[in-house]
Simulated assay, not measured.
Amino acid sequence: MCPFLLQCESPERIELEVEGQKVSLPVENGKVSLIFQQQTGQTRIEIPTKLLEEKETIQIPVGNLLINVKLVKPDDLKNYVMNFMQHNFIILNLKDAVKEGDVFRINNCLKMMIPFFYNHSPLSNYMVECLDYTLKTEVMLPPKLAIQVRAAACVNPKGAKAKKKAADMQKENQVKEMKELIKGLGSNKNEHSIETISKAYPVVNDIVSHIDLQISYKEVKSSHKSRSENEDMSCLLKHLRNLKPFCRVSGRTLDGYCGIKTSAFKELLPQKALLKEKVMQIINYLKRGIPMPADENEENVEDIVDPQ
């Protein structure tokens, strides 16, 4: 995975097939330049990219020869798989950093995720969270307090090696279990009883967990039969073996992902200035403590998940 700035600095390129040979050329002012070496010297020919897109094959006279040039059409399936792999690797890297408790690698992962969230939506709340956490732990907070905030981001409830988890996830699980206790109060539910059961939650949870461990209790989560992971993997591998997604096939398309790029960095290549402006705008808002406008798509998802 190329660094975002390095990828952005490179000019836009397209692939052409010149007499059966594939070449990658930069695009300058909507044109590509072909240079042919002859006995009399070099011949430079500029071809508009729009002409390459409109016609399947273009014949260029070079001396006494006609050179066939055509645009290599993108392979949507390969681009989709490469894009998916980049998303998957960055998620796995973040999960591993959290499990290991590597607070410095967590910040690096958050920085790398900013372009992905922006590519999904310029109003992404997740991008704001990444910038907010990085800004506070690396710029605004004093060094001692910043390292305390980083260390408190992960907890290890069981004390096992490389078994840390995010502190907010641990708190959400505790709140979920506490809601079950409060729901069990029934008609006795009032402010005093809720406060009492909330204080007693750690002891009650510890007793129940030890009893479940002694009687080897297994919670039945669903009555439906779960599919075997091996069956899914074998079915997936069977189709991928025939499709060969890592072998490029010109013109292969995907419904719903037409024209997808190999990475979010290439998608954002024309929007480099807009991304920088958006990031600086969010940072200025965060420094002044002003909340950012919410993304409507993310609000709708949250309403579906938790209508209350």
Results as ranks from 00 to 15, higher is better:
21 Q>N: 13
12 E>C: 06
55 K>F: 09
89 F>P: 00
72 V>C: 15
68 N>G: 10
72 V>Q: 05
44 R>G: 03
52 L>G: 05
39 Q>C: 05
70 K>E: 04
52 L>M: 05
39 Q>E: 14
17 E>S: 06
18 V>H: 03
71 L>Q: 08
85 M>A: 13
33 S>G: 05
65 L>I: 14
57 T>C: 05
29 N>G: 10
87 H>A: 10
80 Y>A: 15
9 E>M: 08
36 F>E: 05
86 Q>Y: 12
25 L>Y: 00
90 I>E: 15
74 P>E: 04
35 I>G: 03
9 E>Y: 05
11 P>S: 15
13 R>H: 01
82 M>C: 09
17 E>G: 01
77 L>A: 02
91 I>G: 06
59 Q>S: 15
72 V>R: 07
55 K>I: 02
26 P>N: 07
44 R>A: 11
84 F>M: 08
14 I>R: 02
87 H>K: 12
17 E>L: 07
70 K>D: 02
62 V>F: 09
70 K>C: 07
19 E>C: 14
19 E>K: 13
86 Q>G: 11
9 E>T: 05
83 N>A: 10
53 E>V: 03
28 E>P: 01
12 E>R: 13
21 Q>M: 08
67 I>P: 02
22 K>C: 03
51 L>D: 13
54 E>M: 12
71 L>H: 11
25 L>F: 01
39 Q>D: 14
26 P>I: 00
74 P>F: 02
